[in-house]
Structures are given as C-alpha cells and as structure tokens.
Simulated scan of single mutants.
Amino acid sequence: MTVIVRALRPDVPADVEGFVRVRQLALPYMLDTPESVAHSLTHTHPDAHWRALVAEQDGDVIGTAQTGLAHDSPEPGQGYVNVYVRPDRTGRGAGSLLVRTAEEHLAAHGATKLFSWVLDEPGNRAFAEAHGYRPSRSAHFLRLDLAHGTLPPRQDPPPGVTLRTAADYADDPRPMFELDAETTSDEPGDVGVEFTDYEAWLAETWRHPLLDLGLTSVAVADGRPVAFSAAYTDGGSRYATAMTGTSRAFRGRGLAKLAKNDSLHRARAAGYTEAFTGNDAGNGPMLAINKWFGYEICATEVRHVRELG
C-alpha cells in the first residue's frame, strides 16, 4: 500500500497510459495522448529540464506531475510544477510526494520561484496553500458542444485577406513561427515567454502530435500569416484550440474570430463533437469571442506561486 514517486518510463506502455488516464480523470478539459506525453519527454528543450513524474501504488499510476523550468522566459529561475491525482485515490500522500520530488528537482536546477495551476476547488486550494503556495491569477476552461451546438455562420474574409491552413506552410513554417512568437509574447500571464529558437519551436510545437495542421486556420494578408487559430485533435472526437492570435499591426479587425470560426466549422465537418479552449480570466476580448461561439466555462484554475529559499 506504500506510495512511491518515480520518473515516468516512456518505453513502458502501462506507465504512459497510466499517466494519460490520471490526466483525463483529473483534468478532462485538456487533450492528452500517449503520443503527446512521449513527445514532451523526448522533444522539450534541454534547458527546460522537463520531467514527468508518476505516483504509483500497488502497481497502479495514481498521480502525475509535470515539472520544468520556463527556459523561454526573459526572467530566469522560474519553474512550474503541475500535480494531478486520480479523484478516487486522493488522501494517500501521492500529491505531497509528487510536490516534494518536483520541488527538489527544480531547486537543483536553479529555480527560485515556482508556479502551479490548481483547480479552483476548496480541497485543491487548501492543498496548495498547505504546501506554501499562494494564489495568483486565474484562468478558465471552456467547452463547446460541436455536435449539437449552433456555430455562428461562416464569414467571408475582408478585402485583402484570404484564409488558408497551416498545412500550406508545411514546406516552410518560419512565417508561422514568427506569428506564434509575436502573439504568444503578448498573452497575459505570470510568466513571460519569448520564442527565439526556431529549431526548438519546430521540435516542440510544429511537430507536436496533437497539432492538426489541416484544421489550423490562418488569415493571410500582405503575403504573410497575420492571424491564426491552432487546432489540437486527439484522433477521436475531441478538438481543442491550442492558441489563437493576431499580429499586432492587424488587431481590431476580427481576424482571430474569422480564423477560429473557420477552424471550428471544419472540425465539426470532420466529425469532432467536443471543442475545448482556455482563457486567462483577465482576457476579456478572447472570452467575449468564445462566448460568441457558444463556449461555456466548465472549470477554473488558479495559478499559485511559491518562492524558494
């Protein structure tokens, strides 16, 4: 009955499948597959010191942690630890062991400030605060019923704008990298991000197994991508928006909404029945867009912070 914490073994199917199962039970609003977990283990930048941990009891994976350094942030020493335990296996010490092991790993690699997403439920928040984490900003998970909901009608692009897909940039993704880097750097959040390593972006983002290039819609103007909505799919019935953004010079023209609407319509036509997305609670414009599509908030997370040392 003893709980042990150890590194995930990517070459052991039961480990990877157990990791995904815990995530699906504890956080059903995000897409995870064995392939996406294995991809993160093998393709995350070495400077992130990314590590996947599992808590095991009687041969079963009952808890997980994803932990690493925000190596692409301009502020050094920031780390993250996100812990999830199967809802039917809480209270056995798995969460505390995962937190302690992750913190030791991050401290050994120079982390001084740790961030953790915690579901906004009394037990989870109490657990985080008991381990020295204080609440910060919040974010929402949103769900859209693609099978039975009513999407806004498709819209024609404005003059000078065309709609394409990310698959059109398969031979040269650099324009998509430049757009992703610009929009991601402007996202609200506790940890700033600067994409400067094109090869790392190719490995981690462009070749991510959940990224569906054919369903990722791109608005093009002046010969370059200026807005996009990145689509993740799990190979089954679920679709998620991984990122939606517009180049600074083209904001305020409804291009992000145009791209996302196009992607959602094509996802529904392809047979996907559920759509998920997430927004910072302070991102009013994007929350308004998602409400227009018919998304409803299905859960909230609170970012918690702990200073080490």
Rank of each mutant, 00 (worst) to 15 (best):
P152R: 00
A128W: 07
F250N: 10
Y80G: 14
V99G: 01
S217W: 02
L69A: 06
S73G: 05
A128C: 08
A102S: 06
G63A: 00
S263A: 14
L151D: 02
N124M: 14
G189E: 05
R51Q: 10
A130W: 12
A26C: 01
Y295M: 06
R137K: 13
T150H: 13
R154I: 15
P153G: 07
R248K: 15
L98Q: 04
T112D: 09
Y29A: 13
A288R: 10
A227R: 09
M30C: 14
L27N: 13
F293Y: 11
D15C: 08
G192A: 13
R164M: 11
A256H: 07
G282W: 02
N82D: 15
L98F: 04
W201K: 09
A94C: 07
G252E: 03
F127M: 05
G91Q: 01
T183G: 01
H148Y: 10
F250I: 05
L287I: 13
T44F: 12
L210T: 05
M286R: 03
A231V: 00
S237K: 15
A170Y: 03
A107Q: 11
M176A: 04
T90N: 05
A139Y: 13
G271Y: 04
F228C: 10
V226Q: 09
H71M: 07
G252W: 04
V161F: 00
F177G: 01
G236C: 14
L215E: 06
M286H: 05
P13F: 01
H148Q: 12
E129M: 13
P173S: 02
D197H: 09
A275T: 05
L144G: 06
P188D: 09
T216I: 12
S96L: 02
T150P: 06
G160L: 02
T2P: 08
L255A: 02
R268G: 08
A130V: 13
F177T: 03
K257W: 10
